[in-house]
Every structure is written in structure tokens, then in C-alpha cells.
């Protein structure tokens, strides 16, 4: 249950970003969360609501895009989503695949109302 710390980190990073947007009204924060990030979107939303209540961030919507766990097969030059823990290449069957996504824990964008 570290989603509260994660929510706090989102607040800090966005506050910093908003310093360069004087007068803008924050409406939405777009997040990207990978399947392997260890962060649960629902509990992050709950933590966000608790943390931002009666602050300047109250009512700001979190828009969470989840990202699948992905691996790359270099010989086949393909990227595939891992389902049922199958990390072998679906095309050639090699086990020698590389990590290609799923650890994301990113702030992708902000949506602002500008004066």
C-alpha cells in the first residue's frame, strides 16, 4: 500500500511543473501505469482523493492509462504482450526475449485551463 506515497510524488512533480504555467487551472493529470509497476490504479485513485481533499488539487481528475507487460524478440524484431506469463516469443519460440514495457509509472500529460 504505497499508493499514498505515489500520490504524494505526483502532487510534488505536478506542483513543480505548474510553476512554469502561472495562472493556469489544473483539470486533469494523465498517468501511465504498467502492469509490473506494482501500483494499483484503484487504490491510487482512492489515495489521490484522500490526499488532495481540501487542497488546491481537489477535484483534479486522474486519467490512468494502463500498459501491458511487453517483451521484444530481437531475431524476429517484434514486440509482444505477455499473457499468462508466457515470455517466449510467440513467433519463433525463443526464450531469449528482452523487456520492452510494463514498468511504467509516468506522468504523461496535464490538462489545463489557461487564462
Amino acid at each position: 500500500m504505497h499508493e499514498l506515497s505515489i500520490a504524494q510524488s505526483v502532487v510534488e512533480a505536478v506542483e513543480k511543473e505548474l510553476e512554469s504555467q502561472p495562472g493556469a487551472l489544473l483539470r486533469k493529470i494523465g498517468l501511465r501505469i504498467g502492469e509490473l509497476s506494482g501500483v494499483d490504479p484503484d487504490s491510487l485513485r482512492f489515495s489521490w482523493e484522500c490526499l488532495t481533499r481540501e487542497t488546491g488539487f481537489e477535484g483534479v481528475a486522474l486519467v490512468i492509462e494502463t500498459r501491458a507487460w511487453q517483451r521484444r524478440c530481437p531475431p524476429c524484431d517484434i514486440v509482444f504482450a505477455v499473457s499468462d506469463y508466457q515470455t517466449v516469443c510467440p513467433q519463433c519460440g525463443t526464450r531469449e526475449t528482452e523487456h520492452a514495457g510494463g514498468n511504467e509509472l509516468d506522468i504523461a500529460y496535464l490538462e489545463l485551463e489557461t487564462p
Binding site: S9, E12, A13, R27, L112, E113
Partner: peptide, 15 residues
């Protein structure tokens, strides 16, 4: 409404 790209890691400060 304006959308501005941020593209930062949430734990960027920790990183």
C-alpha cells in the same frame, strides 16, 4: 482546455 505533455516519471525525484 490545453493539454501539455509532461512525460516525467512519477518517482523521478527518487530516481
Amino acid at each position: 482546455m490545453t493539454q501539455i505533455p509532461m512525460e516525467r516519471k512519477v518517482l523521478g525525484e527518487n530516481d
